[in-house]
Nucleic acid binder design. Sequence first.
DNA 1: GATGGGCAAGTTTTT
DNA 2: CTTGCCCATC
Length: 810
Amino acid sequence: MNEWRFAGFDKGGVRPHIPVDDSLSVRAGPGLSDSYPDDASYPRPGGIAARALAAARGAPDWLDALNPEQRAAVETLDGPVLVLAGAGTGKTRVLTSRIAHILALQRARPFEILAVTFTNKAAREMRERVATLIGPAAEGMGWLGTFHAISAKILRRHAELVDLKSNFTILDTDDQIRLLKQLLKAENIDDKRWTARALAYLIDNWKNRGLDARHVPAGEAQAFANGKGGALYALYQERLKNLNAVDFGDLLLECLRLFRDNPDVLREYQSRFKFILVDEYQDTNAAQYLWLRLLVQRAGPNQPQNLCCVGDDDQSIYGWRGAEVDNILRFEKDFPGAKVVRLERNYRSTGHILAAASHLIARNRDRLGKTLFTDGDWGEKPTVAGVWDSEEEARVVGEEIEQLQRQGASLDDMAILVRASFQMREFEERFISLGLPYKVIGGPRFYERLEIRDALAYLRCVAQPADDLAFERIVNTPKRGLGESTVQTIHEFGRARQIPLIQAGRLLVETEELKPKPRGSLRALLADFARWSGLIEQTPHYELAEQILEESGYSDFWKNERSAEAEGRLENLKELIRSMEEFPDLGAFLEHVSLVMDADNSEGGERVSIMTLHGAKGLEFDTVFLPGWEEGLFPHQRSLDENGRAGLEEERRLAYVGVTRARKRAKILFASNRRIHGLWQSTVPSRFIDDLPVDHVEVVDEAKSGGSYGAYAQSRFANIDAFGSSYETPGWRRAQSRKAEAPPSRGPKTIEGEVVSRAAPPGKFAPGARIFHQKFGPGSVAAVDGSKLTIDFDKAGRKLVLDTFVELRS
DNA sequence: GATGGGCAAGTTTTT
DNA sequence: CTTGCCCATC
């Protein structure tokens, strides 16, 4: 829509060349995909395009689209700016407009703007939205990315200054744990009493706080493994350096070290980044804060610190992983003369929802304070409903969803936001039996899945023959008789000669060290590696990958595995190969994977979303269900125990995030009974329910509410007064009554319309037929009742499912 | 070296 | 009630 503005040099052949800043143009090592060259098409100051651009500057329409506060946030370019952006107040719009504005005024070129986010998703979104504002020049923004991606980019350029090679590997948590396990073993530490996981957590914490091994407070270093904590940290770092590897925390930490030890390098970046923008500032940890502080100190003393941080202290929900809300609370002190802009006009939610959210969050003490308002309708009041147990909770939610669906609402506009992921299962099971399509957001991510990690390890072994961790991962997967003792031997052999495992293995098979059987297997495996490595140049990388998975026996390994998941895993492997086609070569692909642990799983069809409250941040839905508002679960007991009032306030912010995800409807539920660790416990409604304003919330008695379920329950309810039970709560009575009766038979209503229309032709499934179900795996049909099948699953036992969720197996 | 049973633990999650 | 991990056994 704004394309005309840049049309002059995008289409007209005027492509002015901007010389690349030589000092920074050192190319990174192999494997680095530099898809956004710094000198991407952009008008040279004073050039024809630039002048055409200046002419267009008169009335930039991105400014017209802003309210006065947003506009102030966009137009205040000089000096530090803090934008306190409440939920749904247009924070991303401000960030992207600001970038567009800087570029349009030619205050900086695209590669002179540093724009940092926390997630790849946020970075991608920002890039896309900038592109819609200003056109393809957004492609020139080589410094728009996550803290980690940008740090990695900087580190690769100067790797040698921090004792790394520029092709260093980035380890993920899994590699990290395995490395630490080895370390604990080597140090003879009881790794049950002191787990690798705990140590990883500790080290991560230190890194989040910007502490290297020498600066860890003595007390904390002492606390682990009888005083060995600090030493282990140092040893771990040493191991990483030997492997030419860094973990996520190191990306920032090594960057800090680079800047501190090399003032000239720091100065280059300081003068390069004319403007710095930070998204979700309330989520920054100490290391990221230091990183920003270093970069924002511009060369001259009078240079303005053009830092713009956008965030919302009320949405700080990541304290437990090192985020310091304090960073945002302290902003004005840190950056004297800072201008603070509050965005309080909400464009997302209706009045009652906002009122409820505001009232709730006002109970927190440590906050800067904002009051959201809207010009829109009051809309529906958020509802609060008590149910007997988690099963009823799932049932009630399912019914409301179907009712909304009948009224024409899309499943895509509905979400269930839970505090903890174990809550999801009950909803999934209910939805499966209802035939309600759903998707779980934020489960194990694509690249974190076992089979994907294994496949990647094979690729790493082939592309980076010194990758010991990858080698160890798959040396005996699938089983090929190379167990622990063999690996141990290779290890010792390699360590003695200071060479990587694969190389050690090569030498070792020529000796008599190994018994004939493992020696043969190892020799065969290494020969495979060598052969595949040789094919890198000639074979397209995705074909090579396929070949590797076939020839290594890895694909067969899953084909022969007869578990419920095997099918899906093979599917994932195919998806992996497909996704590789988007990358120019294997190196580029592996770099992508280590940083952008992300793969799109957008399948067709409307679906209800099920996700955690944490995962919901930044999203919005017409209707939001908020189940499980019970003391102990939400606020979570552990949060209270471990962090006291601060913990409670973070939980309350989580509640606030949850409520503010809703555009039109927020539905809060609590159960009186919940099964925790296998045993039933009676529960008390969350204190957050009491934090809601009476005038803006509707308390729903499920027994009296409308809808088929309500009517049903009410009629039951009428029957049981005669029980004369000493339990007086309606929920208890209802639950009692239901136990006496057959389960509610309101099935037919729910599978009218769309669902029924998707039913398989009658007779397709006959008793005895073998089938496959996406969640429960393979099974046999036991009985058929219209579109409803009773199935004996091989793993999951007998279940009633809809035929639309089942595939026939021959 | 593989395999199955026993046992402890069990928020939130990105990079 | 699960799940994942470790150890003991074949």
